[in-house]
Amino acid sequence: MPVTTRPPSGLAAPPDGAPTVRPAQDGTSRPPVPWRTRLRNDRQMLLMMVPGVAFLLLFFYVPILGNVIAFQDYQPYLGIRESEWVGLDNFIGLFDDPDFLNAFSNTLYLAAWQLVFFFPIPLLLAVAVDSLVSGRMRRWFQSVVYLPHFLSWVLVIALFQQLLGGAGLVNNALRHLGADAIPFMTNPDTFPLLVVAQLVWKDAGWAMIIFLAALASIDTSLYEAAAADGAGRWRRLWHITLPALRPVIVLLLILRIGDILSVGFEQFILQRDAVGAQAAEVLDTFTYYSGVVGGGWSVGTAAGLFKGLIGLVLILGANKLAHTFGEAGIYQKRAS
C-alpha cells in the first residue's frame, strides 16, 4: 500500500499539523539538515510516538530476550542466570512428544479450516453491505455484524452452549419432539466446523471493516462507466470491485498466513474438556499447559519459539510469493 510520509527535509511543518505532500524527487542532493534541527521540527511527532515505542520495547522486545530459557532447563527458583544450559534438548524433546505433535497437527488442521472457511466471509459480507442502498440500513447491518467482536470468548462459547449444547435450546427442542440430541459441542470430528462457526459469528463483521474501507476508495465513476457500457452486476463485481480489492486481500492473506499457527487460545482452552485434548489441543494451549501449569517453562518456550519461527518463514515466503505475482505485499525493498 502506498504510504505517505513526512518529507525528510527542513521544510517547516504547517503549525496545525495538516498532512504535507512529498515533494517531487528531483534527484539533486540538498544540503543535509542538521540532526538537532530535525529533532526540533519533529518534536511533536516524536513525542507522540514515545508511548507507543516504549510500549513496544517494554512488552514486545524486552520479553523476546526471555526466549533464552528455551535453551535452558529453566527453574523459577534459580532464575535465568543460574539455570542449566541444555542446548537444543528442549526442541528435540518436543518432537519426541506425542502431545506436541498432536497439538501441532491440530493447529495446522484448524488453521486450514479457518483459512478456507473464515477468510472469504468478511469479503462477501463487505460486498453485501456495500451493495445496500439505504445508509441507515447499512449502518444498522454493520453494527449488528461487528458487535459480537466485542464479546469475550467466554460469552461466545456460553452462548453457543446455551443454543447448541447437550442441554441447550436446540437439543431440548429435539428431545421434546422425540428425536435424539445432536452432540454439536462435544463431537471431536465436527469440532473444526464448530470452531469456524464461532469465529465467523464473532469476528467476520470486524474483519469486514478493512474491506469496506477499501471498497469506499473505489472510484464510483468506474462503476458508472461500466454500467453505461452494459456491464451487469456480476461483471462489475468481477472486473472492478475484486481487482480493486486485490492488494488488500493479498495483504490480509499474508498477515493471516504469518499468523497461521495462532489459531486462538481462549476458544480452545474453554472447549478442551468438551471434545478432548486429542481434538482441541493447539500449540498455544500446549504451551500454557506444559509451560506455565506443568512447570516446564523451557519446553513451553521452545514450543512458542518454534511457532514464531514457522510464522516468520511463512510470512517471508508469502510476501515473496506476492511480489512474484506483482503485488505490493506487506513491505517492499526500496527501489535503488
Partner: peptide
Amino acid sequence: SCGSGSSG
C-alpha cells in the same frame, strides 16, 4: 497439563 513429562 498435557505436556511432555520431562522438564530437564
